[in-house]
């Protein structure tokens, strides 16, 4: 099988998994699905490393496995165990509309990358479109969720999108830099969890609708 084709297909799988992360109701299930998505991302890294002979990507794949597949979902899974707010789990938008929005995002992203003329990604335009689209998927996640902790997944999806962009366009970048890119997400999520815990301990809720006391 052609390497580029494999990468594009895996990228497609990425879109499906992120849609699942956004759509699933139970927060813990979302954590598991996010872990799955990250696993797909690690797979993409490995394939790119093989196709483009970029050995530093292998190191990155290892660090991405540790941080994105194990640490981040683990942290969030643990946090969901500590803080429960069933009210906030009701979705703001019906899943159908989320799916429609996702489709729209994917189409728009395909249109957007059409004009990109880079020999490096000549055969990988679908994957590039997915990486761009993930930024908006993340945004979709943030906007459609009421649970602030689940909104953290939105950030994680954006992270994955940007990681993929980096792997596609700069796959020969030094390993250290890429490791840095993946680990900073861990710190960001830890801070988000701390913030969520502070809010939870004060107001006993994770529902965005309740958090409007700062409104002037």
């Amino acid at each position: 099988m052609n390497g580029d084709l494999l990468i594009n297909n895996l990228a497609g799988l990425l879109v499906v998994t992120s849609l699942l992360v956004i759509g699933v109701r139970k927060p813990k299930a979302a954590a598991v699905l996010y872990s799955l998505q990250s696993l797909v991302l690690v797979g993409i890294f490995l394939v790119i490393a093989d196709v483009a002979h970029a050995h530093s990507l292998n190191e990155w794949a290892v660090s991405a496995f540790i941080t994105k597949v194990v640490l981040l979902p683990g942290l969030l899974y643990w946090a969901f165990g500590k803080m429960e707010d069933p009210v906030s789990e009701k979705p703001e938008i019906k899943f159908v509309w989320i799916a429609v929005a996702a489709v729209a995002i994917v189409i728009a992203s395909f249109e957007a990358v059409k004009s990109v003329e880079l020999p490096l990604v000549a055969g990988l335009k679908p994957a590039l479109a997915v990486s761009l689209g993930h930024f908006f998927m993340g945004l979709l996640c943030i906007v459609s969720q009421r649970n602030i902790l689940k909104q953290a997944f939105g950030y994680c999806l954006m992270e994955n999108g940007s990681s993929l962009t980096l792997a596609l366009l700069a796959n020969k970048a030094p390993g250290l830099m890429e490791i840095g890119v993946t680990t900073d997400a861990v710190f960001a999520v830890i801070i988000m969890i701390v913030l969520a815990r502070l809010i939870y301990s004060k107001l006993n809720t994770l529902d965005v609708r309740q958090l409007t006391t700062m409104k002037g």
Binding site: I142, V143, V208
Partner: peptide, 14 residues
């Protein structure tokens, strides 16, 4: 515009 829901503010930013 001052809605109160910070998701709206995220959209403003984007």
């Amino acid at each position: 515009m001052q809605h109160g829901d910070f998701r709206i503010y995220c959209l403003y930013m984007v």
